[in-house]
Amino acid sequence: MSRLLGVSRATLRDWRDGPGAKVRLTDCPRCTDGQLPGADYAHLLGLYLGDGCLSALKKGVYSLRIACDNKYPRLIDEAATATAALHPSRPVHRVQAVGYTAVVSYWKHWPCLFPQHGPGPKHQREIKLTNWQTTLVTEHPGLFLRGLFNSDGCRVANWATRPVGGELKRYEYPRYQFSNESADIMALCQWALDLLAIPWRMPRRNALSVARREGVAVLDRYIGPKS
């Protein structure tokens, strides 16, 4: 049968012994009945909205690029791991640029997973989540925030003074900050914080702050200092 059909014996054995048709690793989980790894997707979505982009190449292929600061090798590793989890059949590349490393993956179906893709900067166009994206982020809001804050946020030490016994005393406290020019992305960050009951405030139009102790403690479980 192998000679007659021109099909390898290994393939014929798979057809004979396999439980049925298998989804190829190159298939898109949105175009088939596949399942997205929700935790990795929520994390990568946050990274994409912060420091990611899609670029159209030849033959319908797109490149997903996540720009990562060279100062934080752990974050580069996490971006590569999350990308590989969504497209495990192809390698994830690390392309060195001036001051940063681009985590890059090529696939025809990246726009299926990131329908927010479009021309121009993100802050100049509408950024809204689809229903299926909203469901995944609702299930994993902490990882979505991890992606956002690791892209456009930071954990810093603030200080303030107050009178104690007639003298000014200085005390320090940790605070998370998130900055983004897109009002839509800022609203998504606020929504995810609300899902975790984390109090936040807006000192400026494009800047968000989490400074209350209980809120910082929750974010420390999901994010923590960059490294």
Rank of each mutant, 00 (worst) to 15 (best):
S2V: 02
R3Y: 08
S8A: 06
S8D: 15
T11E: 14
T11H: 08
L12D: 14
D14W: 07
W15F: 13
R16I: 15
P19Y: 05
A21L: 12
A21R: 07
K22G: 07
V23G: 14
R24K: 09
C28F: 12
P29M: 02
P29I: 03
C31T: 09
L36V: 15
L36N: 00
A39N: 03
A39D: 06
D40H: 10
Y41H: 02
A42F: 08
H43A: 05
H43P: 05
L45F: 09
L45C: 04
G46V: 04
L47E: 07
Y48L: 08
D51H: 08
G52C: 04
G52M: 03
L54Y: 06
L57R: 15
L57W: 09
K59R: 12
Y62H: 14
S63L: 10
L64N: 11
I66Y: 03
D69G: 02
N70C: 12
N70R: 15
K71V: 05
R74S: 10
L75N: 13
I76E: 13
A79W: 01
A79K: 01
A79V: 08
A82C: 13
A85T: 01
P88A: 04
P88C: 00
R90M: 11
P91L: 07
V92W: 01
H93T: 07
R94H: 10
R94A: 13
V95R: 14
Q96K: 11
Q96H: 12
V98Y: 10
V98H: 12
G99E: 08
Y100C: 12
T101Y: 06
V103Y: 03
V103F: 13
V104K: 12
V104H: 13
S105F: 08
S105Q: 13
W107P: 00
K108E: 14
K108Y: 11
C112H: 15
H117I: 11
H117C: 12
P121H: 14
K122P: 11
K128R: 15
Q133H: 02
T134N: 09
L136Y: 00
V137M: 02
H140I: 02
H140E: 01
F144D: 00
L145M: 07
G147H: 01
N150T: 13
G153I: 01
C154A: 14
V164L: 08
G165H: 05
L168S: 11
K169V: 15
K169F: 14
Y171W: 09
E172A: 08
E172H: 07
Y173I: 04
P174T: 02
Y176M: 04
Q177D: 05
S179M: 11
N180R: 03
E181L: 14
D184K: 01
L188S: 03
Q190P: 04
I198S: 00
P199E: 00
P199I: 04
W200D: 00
M202C: 08
R204S: 06
R204F: 13
N206S: 10
A207V: 11
A207W: 06
A207G: 09
A211F: 01
A211T: 04
R221W: 04
G224P: 02
P225K: 10
